[in-house]
Structure formats: structure tokens, C-alpha cells
Design a protein around this nucleic acid. Structure first.
Length: 200
DNA sequence: CCCTCTTTTCCGCCCGTTGG
DNA sequence: CCAACGGGCGGAAAAGAGGG
């Protein structure tokens, strides 16, 4: 099983959660870290947790709040070179999200031996040429690749779609269909193998 | 629920200047 | 006279706060 999390920066906002293996089993939202930990601990045979949030700091930056000119990790620079747009981790609310992501990764890894990876739905959408905010197109893509059923009883939110994108990236990761950006000693970002476009 | 403002950074584009 | 370089400006990216 894999778990996709579209992490919010604050516990007052909704975090998208997607539980899947070959297909999506459940999609919902939660708010507190405590609830996320509960979900993680209850899933049997959980292999990978894929989180949409920065899970590391650039080398040369000890603290996220420190004001210095280091704003990017190697994986961020590689993303930039691929012309995939994203917000720097030092931008306003992103600082909060980064702190929460790093802390959550630590909590999950201390819980049991689960691989926690950083992912980015925006990169998945760009690689597969789906408009990032077009829920209809995103839904159609996941139906086409056989990850979700054609009918869903409820309209899903953007947070939930993003969590599905995280879970899908985790599934590709287990199938060795992903690319690891950056340096493992600093922290890496897992994205779908770009050459998959058109073959999936 | 929705909208608007703010945050940081880089890229792309246009225009002006400069040097060959 | 024209190409090449560079500076300035606008836009885009994710998310929270605050107000409707």
C-alpha cells in the first residue's frame, strides 16, 4: 500500500489523504498531525508515504527563518531547469509548510520503518501535460491510467486530487518509473520519469 | 464557501543602449 | 546600421490570513 498526502501548512486547514495500491482505495481530508499519524499507523503493509511539501533544507541553511541568500536545494534547481514552476521554500507561508513537512517526516519514520518521499503534484501534471488546476482533466487522466473508477459518488476537492497525484507518484516509485532529483545527502524530490509521457 | 492580498524568486519579454 | 547584451517590468508558482 501507498499513502499520498497533500500537506497543508497549518493544522487549521485541510490536508488531502489518498490511500492506494494498484488503485485508489480511499480519499478524504484531515487537519491535525495526530490524525495523519493515526492513518499511517492503521494501514497494513504500507510501503511508501509520498508527501507534497518540502522535506529538507538547502545545504548552508540551518534554519528556515534565517534570512540569507540560499533559497534552493539541488532538486529545486533541477526542477527549474526542467521549466517546472514552483514556489521557493523561503516564500511566506511555504516556510510554515516546510517546517511541518520536516517534522511530519520525522514522526512517521520514528513510528515504523516506512520510506517517506517528497513529491510534487505540479511536476506530475506538467510532465503529463495536464493543466494544474483543471479538476476535470485531472480526473480524466487518473481514470485513463486506471488509477480511479470512472464514477465517484462525491465531487473531489483540489487537495484530494493532489493527494491522489502524490499516491500515484508513490506507485510509480515502487515500479521504478520515477526520477530522483537532487542530492541524497541534502534531500531529494521524486517525480514521474518524464519519458513516461504518452506511454501510460 | 469565495475572493483578494501578500510573501520570494526567477523567467520571459520588450525596449534601450552600446559596440562592432 | 544592426545584432547582441542588459535592465526593468509583469507574470506565475502555493498557501495563509482576513473579510465578505
Amino acid at each position: 500500500m501507498v499513502l499520498g498526502l497533500d500537506l497543508a501548512g497549518s493544522e487549521n486547514r485541510k490536508t488531502g489523504v489518498c490511500i492506494a495500491d494498484k488503485k485508489v482505495k480511499d480519499v478524504f481530508t484531515v487537519k491535525k498531525d495526530e490524525e495523519i499519524i493515526k492513518v499511517v499507523s492503521e494501514i497494513k503493509n504500507l510501503k511508501v508515504v509520498a508527501i507534497d511539501a518540502p522535506l529538507s533544507l538547502p545545504k548552508g541553511r540551518k534554519n528556515i527563518d534565517e534570512k540569507n541568500s540560499t533559497h534552493f536545494r539541488e532538486c529545486d534547481i533541477e526542477l527549474m531547469r526542467m521549466k517546472i514552476k514552483f514556489f521557493p521554500i523561503t516564500l511566506g507561508p511555504m516556510r510554515m509548510l516546510t517546517k511541518r513537512g520536516i517534522e511530519l517526516k520525522r514522526k512517521i519514520e520514528s513510528l515504523k520503518n516506512i520510506r517517506v518521499i517528497e513529491v510534487f503534484p505540479g511536476a506530475l501534471y506538467d510532465i503529463f501535460k495536464i493543466p494544474r488546476k483543471d479538476k476535470k482533466k485531472i480526473f480524466e487522466f487518473f481514470v485513463k491510467v486506471g488509477f480511479i473508477a470512472e464514477k465517484h459518488e462525491r465531487e473531489l476537492s483540489q487537495d484530494e486530487f493532489d493527494s491522489i497525484a502524490c499516491a500515484f507518484t508513490a506507485k510509480l516509485f515502487l515500479e521504478n518509473k520515477t526520477k530522483e532529483l537532487g542530492n541524497p545527502s541534502e534531500g531529494t524530490l521524486i517525480i514521474p520519469e518524464p519519458s513516461l509521457f504518452g506511454f501510460i
